[in-house]
Amino acid sequence: MRVHKLAFAAMAVAAGLSLTACQNGDAGNDGTGRNGPSSASSAASSGGGKNSAEKNSAGKSSGGRDTAAGTGSHENGKVSKCRSDELEITAKDNTIDGDPDGTVVVELKNRGNRTCAISGYAGVDLKTNSGSLSAKRTGEQPHQVVLKTGQSTAFGINYPVNKSGGSGVRITELLVTPPNETKTVTLRWPGAATLPVTDTPGSPVKVGPVGNAGQGG
């Protein structure tokens, strides 16, 4: 009897060990053990990482497009020119006592939502009671001016002051067309009311390039 009991006990222990081994193996396979959540978490992390990478990639690409579209300031790698509709144009008298000529300064302010560039001479015409009078360029070398939103530049208009004592030529309006643009802005003339009458051919009114608003002709 003792031999049979020992044999039975040995078989029971072996059966218990076999059952434990099977349970441990099944835990790893069905995802209910400690290794299960870790694997699932890794998969989720991997999937999340992929989604994040896709989002980041898409976000970066979208951000790049938005930046280009938002600034609108580059065409083929160059800063786009300033448009008339983007510029706030104002004029004021800037004549200094003692100067032989009068001076009007025209300011061009970038009120658009992008950086733009402006260079050259603006078209300047004076409306008078004797007809339209176009300003003559001074011949100075123009330089490109880059304007961020809110920044401004200016140019000067020089004209002879009427000291003849006569009525002269009365100026009614100032017409300004930004460089390389066709849209003209009409402003009130802020300078002296009249120009002297002259028989000299050509225009007595001179305009400097954008970026130069100094006195003198």
Rank of each mutant, 00 (worst) to 15 (best):
E75A: 09
N76Y: 12
G77S: 06
K78N: 14
K78E: 14
S80T: 15
K81E: 13
K81D: 09
D85L: 14
E86I: 08
E86R: 13
E86D: 12
E86V: 12
E86W: 15
E86G: 02
E88L: 15
E88V: 07
I89K: 00
T90G: 00
D93P: 00
N94K: 06
T95K: 05
D97F: 06
G98W: 09
D99L: 10
D99T: 12
P100Y: 13
D101A: 12
G102H: 03
G102N: 05
T103K: 11
V104A: 03
V106L: 04
E107C: 10
K109I: 00
R111E: 11
G112D: 11
N113A: 07
R114S: 10
T115E: 08
I118S: 04
S119P: 01
Y121C: 09
A122R: 00
A122G: 05
G123F: 04
G123W: 03
V124C: 02
D125T: 11
D125W: 05
L126G: 04
T128R: 01
N129Y: 13
S134R: 07
A135W: 01
R137G: 11
T138W: 04
G139K: 13
G139V: 09
E140W: 13
E140Y: 11
E140S: 15
H143F: 09
Q144L: 09
V146W: 04
L147N: 02
T149H: 06
Q151T: 10
Q151M: 14
Q151H: 08
A154Y: 03
F155W: 06
I157V: 08
I157A: 01
V161L: 15
V161F: 09
G165W: 11
G166C: 07
G168R: 02
G168H: 05
V169F: 04
V169C: 09
R170P: 02
R170Q: 08
R170C: 02
T172V: 06
T172M: 05
T172I: 05
L174N: 00
L174I: 03
L174P: 00
L174E: 00
L175N: 08
V176P: 00
T177V: 11
P179G: 05
N180Q: 11
N180C: 12
N180R: 07
E181Q: 13
E181D: 14
